[in-house]
């Protein structure tokens, strides 16, 4: 067969790469205003559980469940973001870390709703659902030379790829918009930004909410890609992992966390012998990056150099 190379396992790895990319972007969005949120694993779990409960118990169609998951996560983001405004730096990081843990403990204990520590199984899987509805319409994947499980994995990958591309595109455009410039101003100097007439409160909550919504979206996609979720998927380690994507890849340019998430998710899968030591490597990476390159591998000057752009108005100007 011509498409035997289309290995469902590789496609699954690629799908996780994409979900992690979304998560990497979600922490970047909040960091764009200088706020470090360690609660994105919590928002992710809210998105995943919302859609899992709605689709398995209340017969919601999957797209509606995913939208609902993102919206509920965004609402949670507003609810956490507004009171957290008075917190800066490490205080915000710890409060959001506490939030993530509270959410996890609630999901473990609220057994009637969430299935407790066991989690929720048999969540509709997007590839399988798509195949079933296409089969009803008279389409057989064999007609384009694909086996059933190849088609399922491929469609999951394609749906995630399209979603990730849309999200990256959206935030890339946002970066050079009024909102993106306001984020950058708040990040550089909050007081100066306020003096310049920027509603810092609004933009900080907006960034926080966008990050929460994107995490919830990633969580909802995760639920429908794996069809099984449990609180163990959303622990402190998940929060740290998301942080590593941004810190390693770079937190000052959108491509940084994208690159970080892709490399760090794909590498351990390709080098199976390393994957036992994944978190040891993560730990060393975090320390080494802070010591040698705190802005991450990819930063705006590097991107400009790669794109062949010269700083406008002579090379001497600092492209801050």
């Amino acid at each position: 067969m011509a498409v035997d190379w289309l290995n469902p396992y590789h496609l699954q790895v690629a799908s996780f790469v994409l979900i992690n990319t979304l998560l990497g972007v979600s922490i970047y969005v909040t960091l764009a205003t200088g706020q470090l949120s360690l609660g994105n694993a919590g928002f992710m779990s809210i998105g995943a559980y919302t859609t899992a409960i709605l689709t398995t118990r209340h017969g919601f169609p999957m797209p509606a469940g995913i939208v609902a998951g993102s919206v509920v996560a965004a609402l949670a983001g507003i609810a956490v973001g507004i009171p957290s405004l008075r917190l800066t730096g490490v205080y915000l990081a710890i409060a959001t870390l506490g939030f993530g843990e509270v959410v996890r403990v609630v999901f473990v204990n609220w057994e009637s709703l969430t299935g407790g520590a066991v989690g929720i199984a048999a969540i509709p899987q997007m590839g399988r659902e798509l195949l079933a509805s296409l089969r009803d319409a008279g389409f057989a994947p064999e007609s384009i030379g694909l086996r059933g499980n190849q088609f399922i994995s491929l469609s999951v990958f394609l749906i995630l790829f399209a979603s990730t591309l849309c999200a990256i595109g959206f935030f890339f455009r946002l970066g050079s918009s009024r909102v993106g410039r306001a984020y950058a101003a708040v990040r550089m100097d909050e007081r100066a930004a306020e003096a310049a007439g920027i509603d810092t409160t609004y933009y900080k909550v907006l960034a926080f909410t966008q990050g929460a919504m994107l995490s919830g979206f990633a969580g909802a996609l995760f639920a429908h890609a794996t069809s099984y979720i449990s609180p163990a998927d959303f622990t402190y380690h998940r929060a740290v992992e998301i942080l590593v994507f941004a810190v390693f890849g770079g937190s000052e340019h959108l491509l940084g966390p994208v690159f970080g998430a892709m490399l760090l998710t794909a590498l351990p899968e390709l080098l199976r012998s390393v994957s036992d030591y994944r978190y040891i490597v993560y730990g060393i990476l975090l320390i080494a990056m802070m010591v040698f390159r705190p802005q991450g591998l990819i930063d705006p000057p590097l991107v400009n150099r790669l794109a062949g752009k010269k700083a406008a108005g002579g090379g001497s100007r600092d492209a801050a």
Binding site: V90, A93, L243, Y279, Y282, G283, L286, I287, M290, V291
Partner: peptide, 13 residues
């Protein structure tokens, strides 16, 4: 935030 992140690194290590 740098020392916070580097000590998180030590913690998972």
């Amino acid at each position: 935030l740098a020392p916070l992140i580097s000590t998180i690194g030590v913690s998972i290590l």
